[in-house]
Every structure is written in C-alpha cells, then in structure tokens.
C-alpha cells in the first residue's frame, strides 16, 4: 500500500512541477503548489509518523494561502503594474511556457541521472524519494534563475525546501526539526507576501 502511495506522490509531484514551471497564472501556480504538498506527504509519511508528515502539508497549504491572499488583495491596476495579472486562456501555451517546459524536461533528465548518486549519498533512501527530491531541487533552481518576481522566487524556494525535506526526513526524524522547518516555510510565505504587497503600502517617513 505504501509503495502505491509513494508512486502516487511522485506522479503528483512531477505533474505539479510541470504545471508550476509552465504557468504564468498565480492562481494555477498556488493550486499546483497545494497539490504538490499532498504528493510530499505521500512520500514523507513513509519515513515519518503521519502526524508529523501532516504538519508539512498544513504548513504548505497555509503558506499557499498566505501568498494567495497577498495576491488576491492587490487591485487590478496593481496586479497589472506588478506583473501578476492573470493571463487569458489563449495565451496559456505561449512560447515562454513551452520554452520553460523544455528546459524543465532537460533538467529533469539531469535529475534522473543524479538519482543513483542521491541513493549513494543518503543510505536507505528509496528511488521515489530520491527522484522526487532531485526533480524538485533541480527544476526549482532553474525556475529561480529564470524569473525574479518575488512570488516566483518564494514558490521556487518553497519547492526546494520541500525537495530537501523529502530527502532529509530519511535521516532526521526529530519533531522539533520538522516543526522548525514548517516555521521556515511559513516565514518564507510571509516574507513573500510582504515583498508582493510592499510596493502598494503607504510609505511614512
């Protein structure tokens, strides 16, 4: 049963990574991120007690909600000005998205080639865990290098941390570490929300 869960988790992560990489719509990105945390819990629950793994899911969803609320709080004008305005359906598969997907595909191949090294580096890590972790870290690094909007950067960092936590949960099962990493996820989302919202705030000397 847990083997099926791991495979399901891996599939969810791969699909959502593709979605986040191609998307220019923040609502779709946050939806993918939320689903991705579900994939993460499927994988992490194999190495950690379910209660602890659930904390990752909850913190991730709250992080998504914080970022979503920040962007939803922007007026239409501010959204356009800051570059967060939703794209139309026709423009979804623009050349930019195709280009990013192609790069993600190539980096994904690199990540697959890294899996044996990962397994050598962390004894006891399973194939699904190492592949999910490598894909999340490698593809997010590419995303970080391509886009510099605060929202995308924070999403990229959250995914990298999730990828790291999947691998780290194999070697470290302390509740406090998992709790603190959840706090870091939430802190990143709060900082992201502040960076998104900051230009629209009133500046008082």
């Amino acid at each position: 049963m847990s083997g099926y869960l791991s495979i399901a988790g891996l599939i969810i992560i791969v699909v959502t990574l593709g979605g986040i990489t191609a998307s220019n719509n923040w609502r779709f990105t946050i939806l993918c991120l939320s689903l991705q945390y579900l994939g993460c819990i499927f994988l992490i629950s194999k190495t950690l007690p379910l209660i602890l793994a659930a904390s990752k899911l909850i913190s991730g969803w709250i992080a998504g909600a914080i970022l979503g609320m920040a962007l939803a709080g922007l007026s239409t004008e501010e959204s356009y000005l800051l570059g967060y305005a939703a794209r139309t359906k026709e423009s979804f598969f623009r050349s930019q998205s195709v280009f990013r997907l192609l790069i993600a595909g190539m980096v994904g191949l690199v990540a697959i080639s890294l899996v044996p090294k990962f397994q050598e580096f962390i004894p006891g890590i399973e194939f699904e865990h190492s592949l999910a972790s490598a894909l999340m870290i490698c593809i997010s690094l590419i995303q970080l290098s391509l886009i510099s909007r605060p929202f995308d950067v924070v999403i990229g960092l959250l995914i990298i941390l999730s990828g790291f936590e999947i691998a780290y949960s194999v070697v470290e099962t302390s509740a406090l570490v998992i709790g603190l990493l959840a706090v870091v996820d939430l802190g990143l989302a709060l900082v992201g929300a502040y960076l998104i919202f900051s230009p629209t705030m009133e500046h008082i000397e």
Binding site: S148, L157, I160, F164, V191, S198, P199, M201
Partner: peptide, 23 residues
C-alpha cells in the same frame, strides 16, 4: 524593504542564497 518600496534584486538574491545554504 521599506513599506512602499518594491523589492530589489539584492534582497531577492540575499533571500535565495541564504535559504539555499540551510539544507
């Protein structure tokens, strides 16, 4: 980042590099 100011490249890079260091 002061309230009312947009984030800048320096801050984004600081956040990225320092966060990547933790793992």
């Amino acid at each position: 980042i002061k309230p009312g100011k947009a984030s800048n490249r320096g801050v984004i890079r600081l956040l990225t590099f320092q966060t990547l260091a933790m793992p």
